[in-house]
């Protein structure tokens, strides 16, 4: 039972950073913007969040600072791709590289320092329920916020005028423009939202999940986030499901060690990436399904 409690509560925590970043990336991709710089934005968010929280003594300040910096980085991406009409793939990689450099510069003096970590939300009697309590109600506030973000993202994208606008821009920017929608501003807004969410996701890693800063701690999660949008075929519930699946896989490493199974630790560390490759191939092989669901203008430069 202890293992089960550990797996469930651990999965929820491990998936939180992925949920934030993936919902942000999903919104950006829905507007036609393929932002491959998520890894760098999460890393910068992690460094910034940790440093800001350490200096100010407030986790809230840490998350806000991380979100703002993620936003700034993503706006550089927007500037490159929307104003200077640069290739989205190359621009995303450039921002990713800049973000990784920036994260190491910001966190340099704080390398290997630790924080107490965002405290669990006091949920009183709920937390006392046997089994269910430790599984679901002894977690920090960001875990619950990430859970809330899933239905909110779904609702906004699928049931509001704003969501319709975003999807229209992503499906056909030329027609959206003809309708009088401000394609560039809408795309910039979606990318900025994605950057802020990636920043928060990164900050969650360094202030709550493993409350310390170490260079390279994002370890490919930003790329897993990009892969998640493909697994989820750009549908909110599926993307969220994918994030929880990956949360549980990253826990497997710890659980297997705890069970005393003798597997090389490197194989377990490589597992999330191997599973990503496998899932990617599995989902993508249905070319028609992918084509029907991906935003039609995804990755294409908008020209009038």
């Amino acid at each position: 039972m202890d293992v089960l409690i550990f797996m469930v509560s651990g999965t929820l925590a491990a998936a939180t950073a992925l949920i934030f970043a993936a919902m942000g990336e999903l919104v950006a991709e829905k507007s036609g913007m393929l932002n491959l710089g998520i890894e760098g934005m999460m890393a910068t968010g992690a460094a910034m969040g940790f440093v800001a929280a350490t200096v100010s003594g407030s986790y809230t300040v840490g998350f806000i600072a991380a979100a703002l910096l993620g936003c700034v980085l993503s706006l550089i991406f927007a500037l490159l791709t929307l104003v200077f009409r640069a290739n989205q793939t190359a621009s995303g990689l450039a921002i990713g590289i800049l973000g990784l450099g920036l994260s190491s510069a910001i966190g340099k003096k704080y390398e290997s320092m630790t924080l107490p970590g965002v405290p669990d939300l006091p949920l009183g009697p709920l937390a006392q329920i046997p089994v269910i309590g430790p599984m679901f109600f002894q977690l920090d506030v960001m875990v619950y916020l990430s859970m809330l973000l899933i239905p909110v993202t779904w609702y906004v994208l699928n049931r509001t005028r704003l969501g319709l606008t975003i999807r229209a821009v992503g499906e056909s920017p030329v027609n959206a423009h003809a309708l009088g929608l401000r394609v560039l501003w809408i795309r910039a807004g979606c990318v900025a939202f994605g950057g802020a969410m990636a920043g928060i996701g990164g900050a969650y890693m360094s202030t709550a999940y493993t409350p310390l800063w170490a260079e390279g701690m994002i370890a490919g999660r930003g790329w897993i986030v990009v892969a998640l949008t493909v697994f989820g075929t750009w549908m909110v519930p599926r993307v969220a499901f994918g994030a929880y699946l990956f949360g549980s896989i990253s826990l497997l490493e710890l659980s297997i060690q705890a069970l005393g199974v003798n597997v090389p630790s490197q194989l377990m560390s490589a597992l999330p990436y191997l599973v990503t490759i496998f899932m990617l191939a599995l989902i993508s092989r249905n070319t028609l399904f992918i084509r029907l669901n991906s935003p039609a203008s995804l990755g294409a430069t908008f020209r009038l």
Partner: peptide
């Protein structure tokens, strides 16, 4: 790392 990032971003712009 930062200089490399700036170099690529400037070029793309």
């Amino acid at each position: 790392g930062i200089l490399q990032g700036i170099l690529l971003i400037s070029y793309l712009a």
